[in-house]
């Protein structure tokens, strides 16, 4: 038996492959409408007001009982700071990037840390550390392939992912985009860690086999993520890697990046991927929509299935939907605790 842990200890133990008192339940994005309203947040201010952001994200920990507190709320911060157009979405839709660059040389990032949303993220990390010292304060960041996709446009990323495997000239182009993305990633990562983040959660949504060639992921994606991950580790911080869609063909590559845990979607079979990942903890795979319309039975069933399949943390497949309800989030956390009490 392991003595009772705080949420933060539990998450860090899982990431460091140590024993836990119970399986941690963690989240990626946390822009939940019910909690925004409950904490008095208003759209779109909660994206640029650190206090509103932390009050909302904090309810995921204090009310729902999740083990981490995650900021910011969307994957648009990096792009906004680089001067791309961002559409702010709605209270129930995350902001999205609406423009892209035509050449890597156009990307200027000297004043990256001066951006208002970047500043909000850093302030929110500091504030969350103060307010919730027992939770794992996690920064939600865009990983290199996806950032390169935001820089050049997702459709161009997809096409270049096959062309670069065929022609050396295209490969050079791809490498230039990726190296700019990595420079930006490192600036932001360092700032988040200096602000006190306990872990970095990287989404590489666009590295998915649903969008790019798996061979491209192995040849370019894995080394890029590893370079960033090694940098994060050199600053003493663990990191989590999420990739969307059916990642079964690339889990082996994901395991080779050095990520402290891999987060996968509902499109994969948990027991199959935990076998491929071996020692590397895998989390995720719960259908996000369960938090919007799932019954207690469905939620409990899905949680148990993932944990029986070898998941080391309980997590939704692809971010927490904005229309999630607090009672369902609690049902999820309870199911994790019950399973742990029985089987750990």
């Amino acid at each position: 038996m392991v003595a009772e842990m705080t949420s933060k200890e539990r998450v860090l133990a899982m990431l460091n492959r140590k024993q836990v008192d119970r399986i941690p339940a963690i989240t990626g994005s946390t822009m939940v409408k019910e909690y925004i309203e409950k904490s008095g947040g208003s759209w779109p201010d909660y994206h640029s007001n650190a206090e509103m952001m932390v009050n909302t994200a904090g309810l995921m920990h204090t009310d729902a009982g999740l083990d981490n507190v995650v900021v910011p709320f969307g994957m648009f911060i990096e792009s906004h700071a680089l001067g791309l157009d961002v559409k702010m979405g709605r209270i129930d839709i995350q902001p999205s990037v609406r423009s892209f660059f035509s050449k890597p040389e156009e990307v200027k990032y000297d004043n990256f840390l001066e951006d208002k949303y970047v500043k909000t993220t850093l302030d929110a990390i500091k504030l969350a550390k103060e307010k919730f010292p027992d939770a794992a304060i996690t920064a939600f960041l865009v990983a290199p392939v996806t950032l390169a996709g935001d820089l050049m446009g997702a459709e161009n990323l997809s096409m270049l992912s096959i062309k670069c495997l065929q022609k050396e000239k295209q490969m050079q182009k791809m490498k230039e985009w990726i190296s700019v993305a990595l420079e930006i990633n490192k600036i932001y990562a360092r700032a988040c860690i200096e602000a006190g983040a306990d872990a970095l959660y990287y989404s590489d949504a666009s590295a998915s086999p649903n969008l790019v060639m798996p061979e491209f992921y192995y040849e370019i994606g894995v080394p890029a993520e590893k370079e960033l991950g090694d940098f994060v580790h050199s600053l003493g911080c663990p990191w989590e890697l999420h990739i969307c869609g059916d990642t079964t063909p690339i889990v082996e590559g994901m395991s080779a990046t050095g990520a402290n845990c891999l987060s996968v979607e509902q499109a994969v079979n948990m027991s199959e991927v935990t076998k491929i990942a071996g020692e590397v903890p895998v989390v995720g795979n719960l259908t996000p929509l369960l938090m919007v319309e799932g019954t207690e039975e469905q939620i409990t069933g899905a949680v148990r299935k993932a944990l029986d399949g070898g998941a080391k943390g309980s997590m939704l497949g692809c971010g927490t939907p904005p229309l999630s309800t607090s009672d369902r989030l609690k049902t999820w956390v309870k199911a994790v605790a019950d399973w742990s009490a029985e089987k750990l």
Binding site: E155, S158, I162, V212, M213, P214, F216
Partner: peptide, 8 residues
């Protein structure tokens, strides 16, 4: 086949 192949 994969999406990039459809796109090109």
């Amino acid at each position: 086949a994969f999406v990039p192949q459809l796109l090109i």
